[in-house]
Nucleic acid binder design. Structure first.
Lengths: 199, 199
DNA sequence: GCTTATTTGTACTGATCGGTACAAACTGGA
DNA sequence: TCCAGTTTGTACCGATCAGTACAAATAAGC
């Protein structure tokens, strides 16, 4: 018998939720994925399946906090923070081979996890918005771009999975990186419009 | 006793799949949503739950074919076709209040529906790409924009649901409409780059 | 080595699952 | 009005569900 620690068990459980969704992730599948019996799972998670899901989402949020959200806030170079965000996103989602559990649960479940999911996405957009402002985008553009970027990441994950083609995700991330690399305040933006009108 | 027709039953079943996901959509929930007993459901769909799901997806695909894909191909004015696409998308997804079943099943299920889902998305991107080319976009930009648009629609639906805020979807659709309204061939694109380098 | 605490794992629970069998109710044609 | 075909609906099936009870195995401290 090999003693398991709770975090590695949680990792296995997370992959079961990703692969099958909340309702499709049975305790039988979890015992198979972790190598533990039900008694062990209930020893680690006395409140059962819903607690496991909550803790998986918390774990995902903490990872994003450590790897993406805090660095976006803290990086003295916002441009570097942005590129690091994309690097981390591509690593975490395995270049489109791994889906987003927050996105899946957002679609599949109703109330149980909605608060946690909402908090995660609101947090991501907020830190990205501030980073974009520091990078030179105007207030409104930054807000809009932050929402568009987080939405774009989610959409790329769905489409990559739907088409069974991870490269879709890679292409979309590449396009987003480029899009976010050209800060253009309102003044610059109207400069581009003048230029276009002149042609 | 009220006799039901198969199509309206299918509509009710579709909403159960949307609300609960494939695994969460039990026959009990379907009998409640349709007002029919299991015997009636099995009379309409002798191959059971998986057949219901296949037929719901086919029905969704047919609706998109009639309302969006064919009009995009057929409209003499590509710009009009594009705006009509967005109008239909907003209607179908109820301005972000209704999720996309294809997207949900793409994330939640593995093999059973992957062919149907892939076909739907590939078809959408293909007709959109051709429409964008006719609208003035270059070949590569059209390809890229088509993928970005379909991906963007999916992401907007996920994020709207995740934040419990349908306006997210409305804003993203608005931004996509604007984005697609300004065809810029390769020559025009490099003109913009020259202009920027001059500053 | 023994004892106690901790971790593991299986048998079992009531409920629900997808699906089947077949009786009941309804409809349409003669 | 009657009968055959069609549609509906419920009881039931074996399997699986989330969760519980508790015994077995292991580990740590004395």
């Amino acid at each position: 018998m090999v003693r398991r620690n709770r975090d590695s068990v949680l990792g296995n459980i997370a992959e079961v939720f990703r692969r099958y969704g909340y309702e499709g992730a049975s305790l039988g599948r979890m015992t198979a994925a972790t190598g533990l019996g039900k008694g062990s799972l209930y020893n680690f998670f006395p409140d059962g399946k819903e607690q496991m899901a909550h803790e998986v989402l918390s774990h995902v949020h903490r990872w994003f906090e450590e790897e993406i959200f805090r660095p976006l806030e803290a990086d003295v170079s916002p441009d570097h923070g942005l590129q690091r965000m994309f690097d981390s996103v591509e690593t975490y989602f395995q270049s489109g081979r791994r889906i987003c559990l927050m996105g899946l649960f957002a679609l599949e479940t109703e109330d149980a996890f909605s608060s946690q999911i909402r908090t995660y996405f609101v947090r991501w957009e907020e830190v990205l918005e501030l980073c974009l402002q520091r990078s030179g985008w105007g207030e409104h553009e930054a807000r809009d771009l932050a929402e568009d970027t987080v939405s774009g990441i989610q959409g790329a994950l769905v489409l990559a999975q739907a088409r069974r083609e991870p490269d879709v995700f890679v292409r979309r991330m590449h396009a987003l990186r480029i899009r976010l690399s050209h800060p253009a305040s309102g003044a610059r933006q109207s400069g581009i419009r003048d230029c276009l009108q002149g042609r």
